[in-house]
Computed example of a mutant assay.
Amino acid sequence: MRILLVFAHPLEDSFAASTARAAKEVLEGRGHVVDLLDLYREGFDPRLTAAERDSYFMERYDASEVSGWIDRLKAADGIVLVFPQWFNFPAILKGFFDRVFAPGVAFEHDPAGGRIIPRLTNIKLFWALTTTGSPWWVVHLYMGNPVHRLLKRGIAAFCSKSVQFRMINLHDLDRATDAKRKRHLERVRALVSRI
């Protein structure tokens, strides 16, 4: 399987970076081809351009500035996202969704209105490996787990109705001990090894 591993964190020595390295190592060890898309190191600009927004509902979306990233998305069989939840998605990852998961790429607008039509049927697997600074109960009970809902219902659904979605999260990272972090990385390795 060809996996697009999308990493969104500015620090190369972050826990998210350790998670991305662990996932990449396990996936490659299992024989998968991993395309590491490090949004910060590749200089991805999250700002939707005027031409992109202007063409959003036109017959053809202006993807000229993001065509390389779109090609990588279209070449993938699966997506694994690695990012921290900073109230929501990091801005660079939100911009990646805005600019790359675009009309004519990830979906088509229904000409009759209503639901969108999925276009990324090549994507069979959509996983997210994330962290939060908040405890589990705050994310789930108080906030309603918004990132999970947006990823599963709003973004993964663009790909295909039958895409395999999974989100693995370490909560309360700000207070996590080294032992808790190591246990989480072991959990990530074990779960990713099933792909």
Results as ranks from 00 to 15, higher is better:
residue 49 T to K: 11
residue 52 E to N: 10
residue 60 R to Q: 10
residue 61 Y to Q: 02
residue 62 D to H: 08
residue 63 A to R: 04
residue 63 A to S: 14
residue 63 A to L: 06
residue 64 S to L: 00
residue 65 E to D: 10
residue 66 V to Y: 09
residue 67 S to L: 06
residue 68 G to N: 11
residue 73 L to V: 15
residue 74 K to W: 08
residue 75 A to Q: 06
residue 75 A to C: 02
residue 77 D to H: 14
residue 78 G to F: 08
residue 80 V to G: 13
residue 82 V to T: 15
residue 87 F to S: 01
residue 87 F to P: 00
residue 87 F to L: 01
residue 89 F to Y: 15
residue 91 A to Y: 04
residue 91 A to K: 01
residue 92 I to S: 05
residue 94 K to A: 12
residue 94 K to M: 09
residue 99 R to K: 10
residue 100 V to Q: 05
residue 101 F to G: 02
residue 103 P to M: 02
residue 104 G to R: 03
residue 109 H to R: 06
residue 113 G to M: 05
residue 116 I to C: 00
residue 118 P to E: 10
residue 125 L to H: 10
residue 126 F to A: 12
residue 126 F to P: 05
residue 127 W to M: 13
residue 130 T to L: 06
residue 131 T to Q: 03
residue 133 G to H: 01
residue 137 W to Y: 14
residue 138 V to K: 11
residue 139 V to M: 07
residue 140 H to D: 10
residue 141 L to V: 05
residue 142 Y to P: 01
residue 148 H to T: 15
residue 149 R to V: 15
residue 149 R to Q: 14
residue 150 L to Y: 09
residue 151 L to N: 13
residue 153 R to E: 15
residue 154 G to L: 12
residue 155 I to E: 08
residue 155 I to D: 09
residue 157 A to V: 04
residue 157 A to L: 10
residue 158 F to D: 13
